[in-house]
Each structure stands twice: as C-alpha cells, then as structure tokens.
Nucleic acid binder design. Structure first.
Lengths: 118, 118
DNA sequence: TTCATTATATTGGATACCCAATAAAAAGAT
DNA sequence: ATCTTTTTATTGGGTATCCAATATAATGAA
C-alpha cells in the first residue's frame, strides 16, 4: 500500500469520487476478484477501500450491467460485460479530455516552477 | 461549452466528484469570479455547474480558508490563500500520482489498440 | 467436525457532489 | 425611481462515495 503514491491531500479537498470509474479502468486491464481490486485501488490511490465501500460499488456496477462474475473457489472473479467495456473506454476518453490538462501542465512544468511554490 | 470535451459518459459511471479540486486547480492559474469559474468548468468538463453546485463549493473553500475574494463591481473575484495554494499543489501531486496511469496508458496506447475495442 | 482463515456482504451514519427552482443583491439603463 | 441584466446565493432533494462495525459464506486444516 502507498508504495507508489502519496497520501490523499489533507485539508484542501477530499478527492472522493471516481471509485466506480477506477474499478472499470482496472477491469479493462485484467479480470479480478474483490480483494484483488481492493489491493490495486489501494496501490493506486494510497487508500484501500473498505468492504463497505467496495462491495456496494461492485453491486451497483453489476446491477447496471457493467460487470459480471464467475465463482472461482471462494472468490468471485469480476469482469467487464460488453457494455461495461464500451462504457469504460468512453469514460476513459472523457476523463482524459476533461482532466488531461492537469496532468500535462503539472507534469510537464519545469520543476522549479512547481517546487518554488510549494 | 463542450467545444473541447466530449459529454460525460452516460451509462457507465457518473464521474461526479473533483469539483473543489477543479476549482483549486483553475485558481492556481488565474484569479476568477464565479461565472468565470463556471464557464471554465463547463469548458473543461463538458457540463457547466449550476449555481446550486458552484456557490456552496466556493463557500466551503472559503470557510476552510482555501480561497478568499475581493469585490469588483458586482463580481466577487476569488483567489487562493497561501494555504489554498499549498493545498492545491499537494492535491495536484496526489491526483497525478493516483490517476496518471490512466492518462498515460490511454493516450500513449497505439490508436488501433483502443479503437479496435470500441 | 471444529476451528481458523479468507472473501464477500450488510448496516448505520457521514460528507461531497449535483441539479432544479427560487431568491436576493448589485449595477446600469431609461 | 423603475426596469432589466448580471451575478451571487439559498432551498430541497437526490446519488455516490466513504468508513467502522458486524455478519455471512466458502475453504482448508487439525
């Protein structure tokens, strides 16, 4: 956990949201079961969702036809449906076009331009 | 509006969130009054926040010491406080480290790798 | 079978986000 | 002063996200 990502910002804004989108994005790359998704989300965001966060989200995605699952032993391996895959790709396009500037401008800015203001 | 950005995805996930963060990011670049912020948010996200969305968010940021404002005629020009600036930069770092992969992998992927799956 | 472990799931409570609709305030025009 | 426009603000209602705590289900081991 948190080995590739700083903690979420404390006082400024809580940065909630994007959980369902993040799940769709992860499933775009690989089928995963719940705990595996939780671990990946923890690695990517710095905080691992609790069961009370993750499973309702998965339930929502399932009942809206975005994901389905098959049991593998005690695990439920989730994967995208056809529709879920389309939706995930559309969401990625939207995300990149809406927030891409932040990545570009923040990562491409000369280091001193950012660090000087910190 | 919506002249640089597709509409938010319909069925897959609603992509709410990040409003306060987006406001902080915009104010990092330029002081702005409410309507100006609303227009910029509309351009970046494809949907312009309604007053009932924007002003409570600005009020929150103000009462938590992130932004302040001065009156200019009938407008209130918002700007970051010192603390707000620090928080905004921290939030940008977090955002990029948490979600940068999505942006990188989706934009750097060969076109056919993405379009073929659409 | 009994126990411990792993994985999934639910409940209760909280906050941020979001809109439609309405209201209020400020400035300029007539 | 009255009217219109612009800008800011509030109210009511809804969903997604989030956690702590608790519960259920499946597996494997002793």
């Amino acid at each position: 956990m948190s080995d590739c990502c700083p903690n979420p910002p404390a006082g400024c804004c809580d940065m909630r949201g994007l959980l369902s989108f993040s799940i769709l994005w992860l499933l775009l790359k690989k089928d995963m079961y719940g705990q595996e998704l939780a671990d990946e989300l923890g690695r990517m965001r710095g905080t691992k969702p609790t069961p009370g966060t993750l499973y309702p989200a998965l339930g929502e995605l399932e009942s809206s036809g975005q994901v389905e699952w098959i049991r593998k032993g005690r695990k439920k391996v989730y994967r995208l449906t056809e529709e879920g895959r389309r939706g995930a790709l559309e969401a990625c396009r939207y995300f990149c076009s809406a927030y891409g500037d932040i990545f570009r401008e923040f990562t491409e800015a000369p280091k001193d331009e950012i660090e000087a203001q910190t």
